[in-house]
Amino acid sequence: MLEIAGLERSYGPRVALAGVSFTVQPGEIVGLLGANGAGKSTLLRTAAGLQPPDAGRVRVAGHDVWDSPLEARRALGYAAEEPAFHEELSAAEYLSFVSSVRALEPAAAEARVRALAGALDLGERLDDPVRGYSHGMRKKLSFVAAVLHRPAVLLCDEALEGFDAPSALAAKAELRTRAREGCAVLFSSHVTETVERLCDRVVMLRRGRVARELARAAWGAGAEEHSPLERAFLDMVTEGAAE
C-alpha cells in the first residue's frame, strides 16, 4: 500500500505541493490527473525518494521513504517522466544491473526482461547502447526497469507517453496484471482517455492540493478495458500476427 500524508513541497516561493494526502490500496490503479504545474511530477518524484519533502510522509508497503529508504525502495518501482540512463550501456546491461541490485534470480530476471521487452517492441534493440534510443524507447526501458521485480508499489509518471499503440496496449496489460497480483499503482497522465479506461480511482490535483477524488463508477466508465478504437486496433494487430 502507498500512503501519502500531508505532503508539502515548495521551490522557492512557488508552492508545488500543499498538504497532499491520499492512499493507494493493494490491487488498485489510481490515476493522478492535473494541469501542467499542478504538482503531479513533484508528488511522484518525492514519493520515489528523488527529492525530500518540506513536510509530510510517504510510506511504501509500510516503510517510510525517508526513514527506511532501503526497505521502501525494495518494494518500489518508478517509471520516470524524463528517464535518464548511463548512455554508454545497452538496455540489457542496465537491466541486468537492476536485476542484480534487486537480488532477482538471474535466469528468471533475464526471461522476464526478454518477455517485457518483446511485448514493448524493444527486444531487438536490447543490446544497443541507450545513447541511440529515441524518447519512446527510453520510456519503455524505464517502464521495464520499474516493473521488472513485480513491485508492491508502482509509480508511473506519464509512463505511456511516447509509446506506440501496440506497446501502450501491452504496457496497460502489464499494469492490470501487476494490480491483479496486489500491486498498488499510482499512474499520472495528461491523457484522460487512458486514465478513464485503466484506473479504478482518480485523484485530481489543483495547485498542489487534492481537488477531487473520484471512483470509477463516478465517471460512468463501463467494464470494457479498451475503447472501441483500441479494440479495432487490437483486432487488426491480432489479425496481422495470425497472417
Binding site: 548511463h86 550501456l89 545497452s90 541486468s96 534470480e105 538471474p106 543490446d127 545513447r131 541511440g132
Partner: peptide, 25 residues
Amino acid sequence: QAATAKKRRAPRWRAEGGWRALQRL
C-alpha cells in the same frame, strides 16, 4: 547527434549484492 549505435555484447546475468553490482557497473 547520437553516434552510430554499435551493438554491445549481451551481459551475464548474475546474482550479487548491491555494492558488487555497482562495482561491476
